[in-house]
Design a protein around this nucleic acid. Structure first.
Lengths: 364, 364
DNA sequence: CGATAGACTGCAAACGATTGCAGAGACGTT
DNA sequence: AACGTCTCTGCAATCGTTTGCAGTCTATCG
């Protein structure tokens, strides 16, 4: 059907092997034939068959990216970033959706190695450690955003302790003393780390830790809703909520809307990870940006280096294990507001205190 | 490295060909050896090498989905749906991001055929008709959501005329007479068709068409912003805006927020295509749902049939060209509101008319 | 002028599967 | 007993590349 190397060789009256060498640039070929061959190849519209090549070389020029879903904006920008980077290097990205599900992850992984992918970047569920460990012998792997504690794979992490610390400190600086935290499951790296950052900021400010202000849960909007209700129903509800579980944000917004709580007048809201609509939301939602784009780039860098190392016969590229951190930063928008110390102490319904951030009046 | 067919054959003391036949189920093999071989293969952990197989059979078990981006929620659910369906059938999905860019689309397409994909579902930019036409000779292709007018490829479309009609009629039924329309570029199928649905609904209701109420533009938020400003600055501004260009929604929301326009009290807002946060937004945004999930499913169905047809030697599967339509439906939430006929005629600032949809009072 | 190195080139064997063709038994028929 | 038929199995070619090895040719040097 399509033009093969044989056709090119034949047209140029050379052997297939010469054609191969000339076009790939490997081995010794005279300048002249090389140019002649490339010209003829172009004229004929020759495109090397990656399958045939892959069979011989054991490489596929395919790199897989396995994420939980596409709803999460971080995953979106990571996917776009990874695809762009890889494409520039002549790799095709295989984007897979694992749904944060152990079985699905496992299945996908085997399919991927079947297809002889050259590299893998994944957000691990953390439940297939053994399998990952085994795969790492054959394929360069880099973990992204989460660590799989059962393995010692190289991992690119957001600096969650720092991010959570930054966010919490910001709220404290605005005068908040009772800060609710809605955070991810504590059996995940990010869940634990964000909690730790929160704790550190509180401790530094000399604010006593109050367990009732912390709600940890699954990565679904429902977590946000129940968590938010729980917090608001407290005898002394928080004056600010830090939603450090990205998926929970929607739930929190729903509950505050249901109860006609005006943000930021009656409650300050700070979220983790950006969403495109956050800055268009009213009020625009302040966030701690985990640096998704940087994370993706770093992951690609690391992976490439490992693939390189493997190519040069220096093991499978999966040694020299380390952990990389990408800095977080605070993006201030309009959902957090300074609170009067006296009021925050009472933690009751604040009087309508004017602020440059909002001129809307409180409802309820 | 991994277990090959030869290993299995050797372990079972049969030839490679017998092993192949036994495991694939093709050809004549005795029941006994077949069972024995499958057992041994499982014991050895044999997994067929898709690359080697692909080289021989010319198939890759790879199906590509090419979309513009991942930000659009419709594309997200489509991608998830397609991946799920294909996986169940033993195919791997290759998800590619084309950015609605002619060059990128072209590049991606060639890479994909290089990789000998078995099928392709794409949202065409409409600018690579010739290339697509050529590819269609080799690979079964189904277009999704948009048609490429330069080709006669089978296409699965949302029923945009119907959807726009439904949405517009809904607004009319609520008493709106001046309805602004922000719609996509008129050189795209969906742009034209949504406009036509809008026009039909107006005509049916005997409302004169007013060109100044229509703003067509590129698929970016900025279009929404400029369009919205233009509409609001009209001597007689509309009482409702129908944002039939999905990406423009954010821009519209920003402008209405900037101008402190309260939705739906001062302005009704109806959008096209859902976003996860629409129902959590305050007010929850009413939409015309284009049926993304159904679209994806239908596209997969069509593609599979074509791949089948091709497999059976009946041409390349790209004949019997047809166009499929997936119905749209209206999802009423809280962003549209009944308007008093008298007031709408004046089209001035309406008095605060109570409605069951909202008890909030108008500001400004 | 012959030997030898050096620079290219071609042959053929891989890679791991699938598949047409022919051979080997088993069995029934005449 | 001979023959045909039917069922199963193995041989070997093939898909389109890459690559070790050996061969050819030219040029250079002694």
């Amino acid at each position: 059907m399509s033009v093969t190397l044989k056709d090119v060789a034949h047209a140029a009256r050379v052997s297939v092997s010469t054609a191969s060498r000339a076009l790939t640039g490997t081995g010794l070929t005279s300048e002249r034939t090389q140019q002649r061959l490339t010209r003829i190849a172009r004229e004929l519209g020759y495109r090397p068959n990656p399958i045939a090549r892959g069979l011989k070389t054991g490489q596929s020029r395919l790199v897989a990216l396995l994420v939980h879903n596409l709803t999460n904006a971080s995953f979106q920008v990571m996917a776009e970033e990874v695809q762009a980077r890889l494409k520039a290097l002549g790799y095709q990205m295989l984007l897979c959706i694992g749904g944060d599900d152990q079985q699905q992850e496992s299945d996908t992984l085997t399919t991927l190695v079947d297809h002889r992918i050259d590299g893998l970047i994944l957000v691990p569920t953390g439940k297939n450690g053994a399998q990952l460990k085994a795969l790492a012998k054959d394929v360069p792997i880099v973990c992204l955003v989460r660590r799989d504690d059962a393995t010692d794979l190289e991992t690119v992490l957001a600096d969650d302790p720092q991010g959570a610390y930054l966010g919490t400190r910001h709220l404290i600086e605005l005068g908040h003393k009772r800060i609710g935290l809605i955070v991810g499951r504590q059996d995940t790296t990010s869940g634990r780390e964000r909690l730790s950052g929160y704790v550190r900021a509180l401790r530094e400010a000399g604010i006593a830790l109050d367990d009732t202000l912390i709600h940890a849960g699954h990565f679904v909007p429902e977590t946000g809703a129940t968590g938010c209700r729980k917090l608001l129903d407290l005898p002394r509800p928080p004056s600010a909520i830090f939603v450090a579980n990205h998926e929970a944000t929607l739930g929190v917004l729903r509950v505050t809307a249901e109860r006609n709580i005006v943000i930021p007048d009656n409650l300050s809201l700070l979220c983790y990870e950006d969403m495109p609509w956050f800055e268009w939301h009213r009020p625009a939602i302040s966030i701690v940006d985990n640096g998704a784009r940087d994370l993706a780039n770093l992951a690609v860098d690391r992976l490439l280096q490992r693939m390189d190392a493997k190519g040069n016969g220096k093991g499978n590229g999966n040694d020299g294990v380390r952990e990389y951190r990408v800095g977080a930063r605070l993006v201030q928008r309009d959902s957090c507001r300074r609170i009067d110390a006296a009021i925050s102490a009472r933690s009751g319904k604040p009087k309508s205190t004017p602020s440059k951030l909002s001129t809307k009046s409180a409802k309820v």
